[in-house]
Nucleic acid binder design. Structure first.
Length: 743
DNA sequence: CTAATCTCAGTTTTT
DNA sequence: CTGAGATTAG
């Protein structure tokens, strides 16, 4: 691809951004303005027209997905190899840097990365060890404190605590740090801070990197926190050109430490002469865009931006009021059907909500109607319990002193090593300042016998896996640890075993990928296992990717950022819910909620629905609420109102006299017979097994009423998982169970 | 040491 | 109403 061709396809602002001279610039990229395109084209332009070498470029993103996408697009664009270019997430790049300089950074070569859950359990262990009342110092709060401190670039020594709580937390920070150091582990924030300190303390090294990276490109700059910005500055040095792309109107992670102020600071500190606004929107139709523009204009302290489109006005934004949440869900189902009939694929329809709890009713209603859906969010692959168990064994192979991993699996599967034994062990380890593993070896007595067996098991595993490939190692570990055996005995264990097998595949795939990308740090030999473990920590894995089958997309507004859909439903637009109660109290919180609403609206291409319910089941009881103030901030001429009431309201709302569960009465009154629903779809939405299908309502002689949620096996072995209203989920052999369809 | 029972809180979460 | 986490009984 010739770069001039690429440039010809850009609009003037995009082109201006792509071809900016060798200096720092801030690009205000509105929603749907071709941000990624500008970023990748800029890199292509630098390489081809400016004779910049790949090794002189660093591009940083927040998510692995964004990094991958940039990589993919670049390789499609350019014939040359991108060897030497640093593209990745903040954490990924810091990891790479720390591995390369582990000695200077005072880390073991095989340091492990703690994810948030690991960090929390490490802290709990610490509190217990120090006999600290976790009522007074809740682990979660201590965790927050430490991470916030790190994100400010602070170490315990440099903290001046004003109150006793902070004082104690600072002490705990110090103790936690010592513990991590002893165990050879780092948490997410530590990756960044260590990397930052590495450069700050080694002028020579800093100078090396500063000279190397002549161009640094930053995606989603509005989401950077104080430490990430400091890291960038450190790496860029006085001469590096930083190309920052972001949108202050889409800053929705302030609650997590993101500092939009970085944009203003950057503008000032880097004396940015070129502030380019990308205001041409290629996604949404006119009315949708107008409505979003007017909404976000209610925020103060903006850098200022107004999106425009060449597409026509398009359809009006539909504002729908329902009596109850279940009526809202019923309406949504019928609307989804209508859209699908009109030819809009299900995966082009998104249902968004403010908080995860809201998905429940929606899921239930969609399932009863037989409409396939996919929920984004929830547990990801590497976060599943069985996977974390397997990884813990692997971590112990790599580093026996990793006490977090040790504690996780020392008694899993059960080996009769209980709380008492472990207390004794930890008591023994403390004065020695040794790891649990090391202390166990020296522990005598009969209680220690089981413990010795465990130590032996780990050592045996290490011996047996020496020389094996990565995937063979994983395979050996899941067998030898007894994990597979343990789950085989469990009723719900089949899925977990499946996931463990998947882990072996993941290891195999990882080995292949690494081979394709020869980007190992130059000076040190990192073991494949260590690299794989880092990969597992840094990339939690796709959100349960259901092999691309057409399904309605359900997710929180946060999760929808960066995505786009033909039709978008924003549900639960009620005061207290969206904007959320906890955010209403102060102006900045409210503005972030408004930005959230703005992000949600700008996901839609052709059709946007905004709905709210006057009463909603919340925490087990129905609550009345007012329509969201955001609805009143939209321009009337872009809207089209609809109020739901009457028959469907009654059928969807058995509330006032509901002594039986909503679920049971609901399903009986589900308006559409599922079989008819099937014919309404252009493509059959689900497969049938012996005449049954996922989402079907059935009844069983013993267990009562339920819904089919999954299938496995075939022929005479075919089994269905049924979620029973009263007795929970069960696997039933279809040939035996005599399930009756309920209409 | 496990299993059953109770209590209690209950936004959003790229790494 | 749910689900996690702690407490208590076998």
């Amino acid at each position: 691809m010739i770069v001039s061709d690429l440039l010809a396809h850009l609009n003037p602002e995009q082109r201006a951004a792509v071809t900016l001279p060798d200096e720092s610039a801030l690009i205000l990229a509105g929603a749907g303005s071709g941000k990624t395109r500008v970023l990748t084209t800029r890199i292509a332009w630098l390489l081809q027209s400016q004779r910049i070498r790949p090794a002189e470029i660093l591009a940083v993103t927040f998510t692995n997905k964004a990094a991958r996408e940039m990589m993919t697009r670049l390789t499609a664009l350019l014939p040359i190899h991108l060897r030497g270019m640093w593209i990745g997430t903040f954490h990924g790049l810091c990891n790479r840097m720390l591995r390369a300089h582990h000695q200077t950074a005072e880390l073991p070569q095989t340091f492990q990365i703690l994810d948030s859950a690991d960090q929390l359990s490490a802290l709990k262990r610490l509190l217990k060890r120090l006999n600290i009342d976790d009522e007074k110092y809740p682990p979660k709060q201590v965790q927050r404190f430490i991470n916030q401190a790190k994100e400010q670039g602070l170490r315990p020594a440099g903290m001046d605590a004003s109150d006793p709580f902070s004082q104690k937390c600072a002490e705990l920070y110090a103790a936690y740090h010592a513990q991590c150091q002893r165990e050879g582990v780092v948490d997410f924030a530590e990756l960044l801070l260590r990397s930052y300190e590495l450069l700050a303390r080694n002028a020579e090294m800093a100078a090396h990197y500063q000279a190397r990276f002549k161009h640094m490109l930053v995606d989603e700059f509005q989401d950077t926190n104080t430490l990430q910005y400091a890291w960038l500055k450190q790496l860029a040095g006085p001469c590096g050109a930083v190309f920052a792309v972001g949108d202050d109107d889409q800053s929705i992670y302030a609650f997590r430490g993101a500092n939009v102020g970085n944009m203003r600071d950057f503008e000032r500190e880097y004396k940015v002469r070129h502030l380019i606004r990308l205001e041409q929107n290629y996604r949404s139709h006119g009315h949708i865009l107008d409505a979003a523009n007017v909404l976000i204009a209610h925020n103060t302290r903006r850098l200022g931006k107004n999106l425009r489109t060449d597409a026509g006005c398009g359809e009006c934004v539909r504002v729908v009021s329902a009596e109850t949440d279940s009526q809202e869900a019923l309406w949504l189902v019928s609307e989804v059907r209508a859209l699908n009939r009109k030819g809009i694929p299900l995966d082009q329809i998104a249902v968004l909500y403010r908080s995860n709890a809201q998905s429940r009713v929606l899921e239930h209603t969609l399932m009863s109607a037989g409409i396939p859906y996919r929920v984004t969010g929830g547990l990801r692959f590497f976060e599943r319990a069985e996977i974390k168990h397997a990884l813990a064994y692997l971590r112990l192979l790599e580093n026996p002193d990793d006490d977090t991993a040790f504690m996780r699996v020392v008694n899993f599967p059960a080996r009769s090593i209980g709380a008492r034994t472990l207390e004794v062990l930890s008591e023994a380890a403390r004065p020695l300042n040794r790891s649990l593993h090391a202390a166990a070896a020296q522990l005598g007595g009969k209680t220690a016998a089981h413990l010795q067996r465990f130590i032996q098991l780990i050592e045996e595993m290490r011996a047996r896996t020496r020389g094996l490939s990565l995937s063979e190692t994983v395979q050996h570990v899941i067998d030898a640890s007894g994990l597979v055996e343990h789950y085989r005995a469990e009723r719900e264990g089949q899925d977990r075993i499946e996931n463990l097998r998947e882990l072996v595949n993941a290891a195999l795939a990882f080995t292949k990928e690494e081979h394709a990308e020869p980007e190992a740090p130059p000076d040190d030999e990192i073991t494949p296992l260590s690299a794989f473990l880092a990969h597992a920590s840094l990339e939690a894995g796709e959100h349960q990717a259901q092999a691309g089958q057409a399904a309605v997309q359900l997710m929180t507004v946060h999760a929808a950022k960066g995505l786009e859909f033909s039709a978008v439903f924003i549900t639960g637009l009620e005061e207290g819910l969206f904007p959320h109660q906890n955010s209403i109290i102060d102006a900045s919180g409210l503005e972030e909620e408004r930005r959230l609403m703005y992000v949600a609206m700008t996901r839609a291409r052709a059709r946007l629905y905004l709905s709210f319910a006057r009463s909603r089941m919340l925490h087990g009881q129905s609550r009345h609420s007012l329509r969201s103030r955001f609805l009143d901030e939209l321009p009337e001429q872009t809207l089209q109102h609809q109020a739901l009431h009457g028959a469907s309201a009654r059928s969807g709302a058995p509330r006032p006299h509901a002594s039986h569960t909503a679920g049971a009465s609901w399903t009986q009154q589900a308006p559409a017979a599922p079989r008819r629903a099937l014919s309404e779809f252009s493509a059959p939405p689900h497969k049938t097994v012996s005449g049954f299908y996922i989402g079907q309502s059935v009844s069983h002689a013993v267990f009562g009423h339920g819904t089919i949620t999954a299938f496995e096996g075939n022929g005479a072995d075919a089994r269905a998982q049924v979620k029973f209203t009263r007795s929970g989920a069960k696997w039933l052999v279809l040939g035996m169970a005599k399930l009756q369809p309920v209409l």
